[in-house]
Simulated scan of single mutants.
Amino acid sequence: MANLATSQRLTRVFYGATTLVVTAFIVLPLVVIVWMSFFANKILAFPPSGYTLDWYRRAWETDVFRDGLIVSLQTGLFATLASLLLGVPASLALVRYGFLGRELVNTILLSPMIVPGIVGGSALFIFFIQVEILTDVQIAGTTAGLLIAHSLIALPWTVRLVSTSLIGMNRSVEEAAASLGASALTVFFRVTLPIIKPGIIAAALFSFVVSFIDLEKSIFLVGPGKTTLQIAIVNYLEWNLDSTIGAVAAVQIALIAALLLITDRYAKLSRAF
């Protein structure tokens, strides 16, 4: 018994130490970036000569960052709305109805989540070029093309989170409403929708996050004079190495962390992966 207790204690210590190391490996780079954003040095160096908030002011005054933030916010909001309009009905059909090819449709809807971003971005770019060749309608390099791509990025997460909510709800409530004479639309809007609302809110927030942080697809599809915040960061780092980039990254970290915490409030993200 003593040997068993010792073994269990060592196992707990090992798992605890491993968890601590992995957490530190993930969190410490973020902490360093936020810390770096306050350095007073003109060029990044350790240890810092002092601390300042000027880099945050400079980041906002830099046109490429400010414009990139606006484009990313607009694109993320559109992608969120589009993914909800398409994803909620699709989730309802996939969960509630059996039809020929349902598994294939489900796979297609979730495929953007599986395909590497760089592969998906290049594939979309080639597809848009082929459409332009056949129809003389330009999509690549336009705002419309960027919005379509980001909607595809967000759609799988909406389908997954809303489907999870639908699977977990008690259908007897819907059946009771239908037995009392409520139409299918009334049941959906008055019963189903309020019950799965936390999943829809989580889907909206998470869809916005995955669109906002996307780089791989955006880099293929942005047009002249338009750039997302992620591309602006990459371009800036090519020629500059100062704490402006740390300030931009720190704001992103704070925004995304807040959205993920709100998302987890409505739907535990650990259950969605």
Rank of each mutant, 00 (worst) to 15 (best):
M1A: 14
M1N: 11
T6K: 15
L10D: 01
T11K: 15
T11P: 07
F25W: 15
F25C: 14
P29Y: 01
V32P: 02
F39C: 07
F39R: 00
I43Y: 14
F46M: 14
P47H: 12
S49L: 07
S49R: 15
G50S: 10
T52P: 11
D54P: 02
R57M: 14
A59N: 01
R66W: 05
G68M: 08
L69H: 07
T75E: 11
G76Y: 09
S83T: 04
G87W: 03
A90H: 10
L92M: 15
L94D: 08
V95D: 05
V95F: 02
R96I: 12
F99N: 11
L100D: 09
V105R: 04
T107K: 12
I108K: 05
L109E: 06
L109W: 13
M113H: 11
P116H: 10
G117R: 09
I118F: 12
V119S: 03
I126C: 08
F128R: 00
V131K: 09
L134G: 08
V137E: 05
A140Q: 00
A144Q: 05
G145K: 07
I148Y: 08
H150A: 01
H150I: 05
S151W: 02
L152S: 03
T164V: 08
G168L: 03
E175F: 06
A176F: 00
A182N: 02
A182M: 11
A184I: 01
F188T: 06
F189H: 09
V191C: 02
L193Q: 08
L193N: 00
I195N: 01
I196R: 03
K197A: 15
I200M: 12
I200K: 06
A202E: 07
A204V: 05
F212V: 02
V222P: 04
L229I: 11
I231R: 09
I231Q: 02
N235T: 10
Y236A: 03
L237C: 00
W239P: 00
N240F: 14
D242A: 05
G246T: 07
V251K: 09
I253G: 04
A254W: 04
L255S: 08
L259V: 10
L261S: 07
I262M: 13
I262H: 08
K268Q: 11
S270C: 02
S270E: 10
F273L: 12
